[in-house]
Nucleic acid binder design. Structure first.
Length: 491
RNA sequence: GGCGCAUUCGUCUAGUGGUUUAGGACACCUCCCUCUCAAGGAGGAGAUCACCGGUUCGAAUCCGGUAUGCGCUACCA
């Protein structure tokens, strides 16, 4: 009978929610939900100096936005709390003291300055960096002397000098490391906070974590953890290291590559469901063809066996395509509701607020199939809202047309449109098609002229639908404005 | 420098000894649809599976070496 699955996402509030970290959270969440296990969020706030204000909220908001709900952790509590490492200091201290008492760890009094000089020296002599173990075998008298000097020590792990440490990773297989390449790493800092290594091992044990799913960059530190588990007499959880996410230049994805925080994607109008789909496919695949896959299918099919080992480059063009697919699949009302805040925020300030929801509802069908992100919606729809259109008059003159023929076309269109009974799509199309024929113009020529006059651009939603939404009054005044733009050129 | 890991179209990937003239997707190109754009449809181009050697009747798939890349090497996570 296998233990129940308990996995954790353990972010450090030292920065904003990086998509790489969020992908790790997603995989943990998917794994938990797939196996009916427990998804835990634990805050690793042991680095007091690097703590960033607001980072914690941003991380939790990111998880919530993507729908990655946690069963234990901040705000929800749980039986294994507290879930902030800063509130578990006593636990780490006890563990560290026990290790010292057992002879598996020792106090180190070396100053940061000395350590830095030591590292410089090692670098100069091209030797592998690492603590030189000066304090490993201090006598009781020597220790008393240092204490008397008022030095607060750190606790270091007494790494075995010989032998090797082996472990098995669910994704990478067996890895073997010589103990001689591992130095005596710090367990407890002089400020009383634990390092990641200690806190992580103690908490994963106490919280009964069954599987550790985390980024590949942790792979090299597993031997230390294994040694710690052994010294503490704990059973080590199963391990699965996830491939990294890289920028287009193949280095660790960072600020230089553009948006890296999940909150930025939210602001840029990506849909959470698209984001989940895209992130899931970064390092995992269902088969040889599935691209669009729902959250439910993801949960149903997720497995560690299908996680790849190779680092993936974040392809934002593909994300953008995928987001477009999701946008188009939304119901019109859903799309409208999601686009509304972006419109309120993104439309020019002179547009009257609040926006008329009825008017917006009529516009959105024309926008939905053209937007790749919600943030594009205001730009695509702007001409529906503004009173003045700004464009170059030369755009009005279509292919194979002259100023004169353009003016003639505009004038006769003006005439017909004002006489039209119903200003709807079908009658508009009928009247304008026959007008083109009368004028001896190709439909494309006439429609092109009108498109620019009415929208101010050469690329826009279908003309008749657009005109119908704009209404007769606006269309006529815009045609008039177009004529005025062209008229001075005649003189 | 040391240690570890990886290497299939530009990118994400499928592929776990023969069904592969290596499949799909994004991006790109052509054509169709069409009032422009978008979407959609049909095609195309694009990978000597990093390289070298070995095992085998047969290797992208197994083994060894080389190269390249990435990660780690903190009183950071």
């Amino acid at each position: 009978m296998s233990k129940s699955v308990r996995v954790r996402f353990a972010p450090s509030p030292t920065g904003y929610p990086h998509v790489g970290n969020i992908r790790t959270a997603l995989f943990n969440w998917l794994f938990a939900r797939h196996s009916g296990g427990t998804f835990i969020v634990r805050i690793e706030d042991t680095d007091v100096a690097r703590r960033v204000e607001g980072a914690l909220e941003a991380i939790l908001d990111g998880l919530r936005w993507l729908g990655l709900d946690w069963d234990e952790g901040p705000e929800v509590g749980g039986d294994y709390g507290p879930y902030f490492q800063s509130q578990r200091l006593e636990l780490y201290r006890e563990a560290a003291q026990r290790l010292v008492a057992q002879g598996d760890a020792y106090y180190c009094y070396c100053s940061p300055q000395r350590l830095e000089e030591m590292r410089k020296e090692q670098a100069r002599r091209k030797q592998p960096p690492g603590y030189d173990r000066r304090c490993r075998n201090l006598s009781a008298a020597e220790r008393a002397q240092k204490e008397a000097e008022g030095i607060t020590p750190v606790v270091r792990f007494k790494t075995p000098l010989e032998g090797q440490t082996k472990f098995n990773d669910l994704i990478w297989g067996e890895v073997v490391v010589e103990n001689s390449t591992i130095d005596d790493f710090v367990l407890l800092k002089s400020d009383g906070y634990p390092t990641y290594h200690l806190a992580n091992v103690v908490d994963d044990h106490l919280m009964e974590i069954s599987h550790v799913l985390r980024a590949e960059e942790w792979l090299p530190s597993v031997p230390r953890h294994k040694l710690l588990y052994q010294a503490l007499g704990y059973e080590m959880p199963l391990l699965a290291h996830l491939p990294m996410i890289l920028g287009p230049d193949r280095t660790k994805l960072s600020k230089r590559h553009g948006a890296v925080s999940i909150t930025e994607y939210q602001e840029q109008g990506y849909l959470p469901e698209a984001m989940v789909n895209f992130l899931a496919l970064l390092g995992w695949s269902l088969d040889d063809k599935t691209e669009i896959i729902s959250r439910e299918e993801l949960v149903r099919n997720f497995s560690l066996e299908r996680v790849s080992k190779t680092a993936a480059i974040f392809n934002s063009e593909k994300l953008s395509w995928m987001n477009g697919v999701y946008i188009r699949s939304l119901s019109l009302e859903d799309f409208t509701q999601r686009a509304l805040p972006f419109l309120e925020r993104g439309l020019p300030p002179e547009v009257e607020r609040p926006l008329s929801i009825d008017y917006v509802r009529r516009i959105m069908p024309l926008i939905q199939e053209r937007a790749r992100t919600l943030a594009e919606v205001p730009e695509l729809a702007e001409f529906f809202f503004t009173t003045e259109l700004e464009y170059d008059a030369s755009l009005l003159i279509g292919k194979g047309m002259t100023q004169e023929s353009t003016i003639e076309a505009l004038k006769s269109a003006q005439q017909r449109l004002s006489e039209l009974e119903r200003f709807d799509e079908e009658p508009l199309e009928a009247v304008l098609r026959s007008l083109a024929e009368e004028l001896g113009l190709k439909t494309g020529q006439l429609f092109g002229v009108l498109r620019v006059a009415v929208t101010g651009r050469t690329a826009a939603p279908p003309l008749f639908q657009t005109m119908a939404v704009l209404g007769r009054e606006k269309c006529l005044s815009r045609i008039k404005a177009a004529l005025e733009k062209l008229a001075p050129k005649l003189c």
